[in-house]
Structures are given as C-alpha cells and as structure tokens.
Design a binder for these strands. Structure first.
Lengths: 231, 231
DNA sequence: TCTCAATATGACAGAAATATGAAATTCGAT
DNA sequence: ATCGAATTTCATATTTCTGTCATATTGAGA
C-alpha cells in the first residue's frame, strides 16, 4: 500500500487526531474534517484515495453521506470505510446497502484499520501486486518480495529493493536525485543527495554478476534512468 | 453456499422452529436442540458445518458453551453465530473474546441471517481439511492436528501450529508482522508485533532438527515468508 | 591535453531490525 | 486455590543496513 491520500470525516476531535496520527505514521497523507458539509467542500476540488467515515455525524449522518457520494459518478469510486461503535452493529446492515466497502468497530487497533484499508483497496483493484519483468529476464515480485534473473534469486537490501521496484514501475525516464529521494525514501527524509549514488552503486553491484548493471544508467548532470535500451 | 448441516441450540421452541424452517427453506439440513447438554451429545458423534447459538440458554450459557467448544481441538473449527436480543448488546463484547464468529440480533431477517452465515463461512475458509505437504516432506494435517517430517511427528504448541498452518496455506508470500497478527491471532488481538518474532523463533526451533528451518524466511524490513525456494 | 565538476567506489561508524533466552503473566485444568 | 503449560513481554546479543565521508575515476569543454 503506497502513500495514500485519506479523507477522515469524524466529529470527535480526539478520534480525528488519533486517526491522523495513525495514518500519517503509516506514511499516508491525511485530511480530517468534522462533518459532511466540510467534507463535501473538499471533495469538490480534490479526490482522496479513501474515505474514513464516522457513522454518527452531526447534520448529515454517515449513511446519508455515503449514499450521497454513491450518487455522484466521480465520487462513487472512492472506497469508504465506516467507523462504528460496538453497539451500532445494526449500522452494518444499513451500511452494506448504501455502498460502504467495509467497517471498523471502535475501538480498533492501528493494525486492524490498516489491514482493512489494504483489503478494501485490493478489492477496489489498485493492483500493486503483479510481477514486473524485463525482456532481459529480470523479474521483481512485490508479493513474494523477491528479485530474480532467469529464476536465479538475487539478494538486495530494503532500500535497493524499493529503488529497483520504483525504477521497474517507471522505466525509460530520468529521475533526479531529489525525485528519487521523494519517491523511494519518502517526502520527509532528510538525506544527502549523494546518498542516492551509494544506493545506485549497491544496486548495480547486485545486478552486475547477472550482467544487468547496464539497466541502471547515469545521466550526467541530471540523475538516473532505468532502461533496457543501451545508454 | 452449498447444502450445510447446521446445528441450532435455542431454548425457545418457537424460535427453534422458525430457524429450522428458514434454514431448511434455504436448502440446509438442520438439527435443533434446546440446550447445551443435548448439543454436546450430538457433537460427540457428528460435526456440523455451523452452529447457531442462543445467548441465553438454560444451564450452560451460550458464551460458556462457545468457550467450551473452542477448547476442544475437533470442535474449535466449527463456526459459531450467536443469536442475541437487542438489549443484550454487551453479549457481543464477551462473545468476541470467546471465539464467536458473528452475531445476529433478534429479531432478524432471513436475508440477514443467511448473509451472515455466508460471510462467516467465507472467512472460515472453505475446505480446510486436507493434509498440506511440501516437497521436502513436511506435512500438516488440520483434521488430526498433527505435523510431521517424513512421517516422523513434530510437536508444536497451539500458536506455532496455527502459524505454520497459515504459512502452508499461503506460501511464497511475504507477510508483515501486522498481517500475521491479523490472520493468525485475529484482528482484535492487542499484542506487540515483536511477539511474532518469538513464535517464529519457536517454530524454527521445532523445524530445525529436521533441517526445515529454512522454510521460514525473514524478509528484513518487511516480515516473514514461507517458501521452499531458497532465501 | 588539461582542468574542473560530476559521479563512482570503498570503508566505517552509528542506527535499525531481528534473534534469542529468560522472566512475567495469563488461562485453563485439577 | 494451585499447578502447569502456553503466551507475551522484556532485556540483551547479533546481524544487517544506512548515510556520510574521503578518495579515485570519468567526461565535457576550453
């Protein structure tokens, strides 16, 4: 589950903060508002990747809001997870019929929430899980978390894996060191740009025995590029 | 949902009849008894596919009965749906902790009941009863609740068994500690992630003498993976 | 060819993640 | 209530990774 933009609609400030902290801690971007009205205002100009909706909201209830969303073509595609209290079990029945994708019962653990978000996204078809292959025989499997060349496994560290993954998803395109830091390390990483060079080096070193080092190309003065075409 | 054998435990004759009629109408085979004692007698010789359990039972309460069931290896696998009255909402809390899979609040619609049965069965994972084997000679028999390597039995604790079972059903795939806690411990387990490490350790220790420890692979920064392919 | 800036490379110390043993706690059985 | 097995937590040891630096190498333009 890569970085997501999550819109939280929850009237209790404490829960709102908790959710923001939790989700941001997991590397997502969060916008939190206390009611449906404010949520609508935001939705009119920016579409989030997922909506966390409290069942009890002042003004327009969560269910009503969900129904309203599902009527709008543009908004209907946004997956919704509804937050319910334990004694609102009957909300589930009503919710299922109004197009809510899943429920989380309060109190919930961070783990449970993130797991359900993952599940909903998977169902929604944000398919981040296919094996990526190059013509040369290099393959990266995000699910198994393995990299191989002609079925011979390669061993690479966490950062090198992420770097290669990014490159294989975005081939034939130069990225500056700053861009790579943003995409691979994440926006809040305070790291020297030169560090990228080192990890590029480590990645090449792993690919070298298989003769695939030339996939990682230096573009002098600009950055790096992953490409099957020669330099 | 194909034809199921459902055991109903409910003291009120009227509700019992209603359930029998409903379920038989949906094409299932139903056995209905008024109390836990009679249910136990039946369970000793015939395992149903699902249990519908009233919360208030004479003699032994539904919760107590559920706990008793979950203690028995053979019976623990039978999914349980508990029937509660609207003013017994607190039953749900107690029930979740005693291994009940879902609830239906009386009065309920046929549709809701059948939908929840479907959901519970889906979660319980159909056909959970075949022996699973690896090429290396490791075998796990969910029915006998036994693990062996080349027919030599291994002894492992309950959690290690569940963990190995999960891994063998989902091989060649990395799972984060959070995912493993969700899948093996259950979503509502409030446990440290590091606890997973300890159980991984114990599982490896058991597999070690048979030289099968390498099946459980650490994926640094991500989690663990069960695979027959080397690291 | 020479110069200078950019990149490559190897090494290292600190940081982070995992492994491991053991104590503390929980839960069911007697 | 007490015992004991199983589980979780805790403290510590190990392993592996990371970011930075110092130095070598390369490449483009004068």
């Amino acid at each position: 589950m890569s970085e997501l933009h999550v819109l939280v609609v929850e009237d209790e400030a404490a829960v709102r903060e908790l959710l923001s902290a939790t989700l941001e801690g997991a590397g997502h971007r969060v916008t939190a508002v206390p009611d449906a009205h404010k949520a609508k205002a935001l939705l009119s100009r920016d579409l989030p990747d997922m909506l966390l909706l409290d069942w009890m909201l002042p003004g327009m209830s969560g269910i009503e809001f969900a129904k309203w969303l599902k009527r709008d073509e543009r908004l209907a595609a946004v997956p919704i997870i509804m937050l319910t209290a334990r004694d609102e079990e009957n909300a589930k029945v009503a919710g299922l019929e109004s197009g809510v994708d899943d429920y989380v019962t309060k109190p919930f653990s961070t783990r449970e929430l993130l797991a359900r978000m993952r599940a909903v996204l998977r169902r929604a078809g944000a398919d981040d899980s296919k094996v990526i292959r190059t013509r040369g025989g290099l393959a990266l499997d995000p699910v198994q978390h393995r990299v191989s060349v002609d079925n011979a496994p390669l061993s690479l560290g966490p950062t090198e894996f992420k770097l290669l993954h990014f490159f294989m998803v975005h081939p034939d395109r130069v990225y500056s060191r700053a861009q790579l830091l943003d995409m691979v390390w994440g926006a809040h990483a305070y790291v020297e740009e030169r560090t990228v060079d080192v990890h590029i080096r480590r990645l090449r070193k792993v690919l070298e025995p298989a003769g695939m080092e030339s996939l990682i190309q230096t573009v002098r003065g600009v950055g790096y590029r992953f490409s099957e075409q020669a330099g």
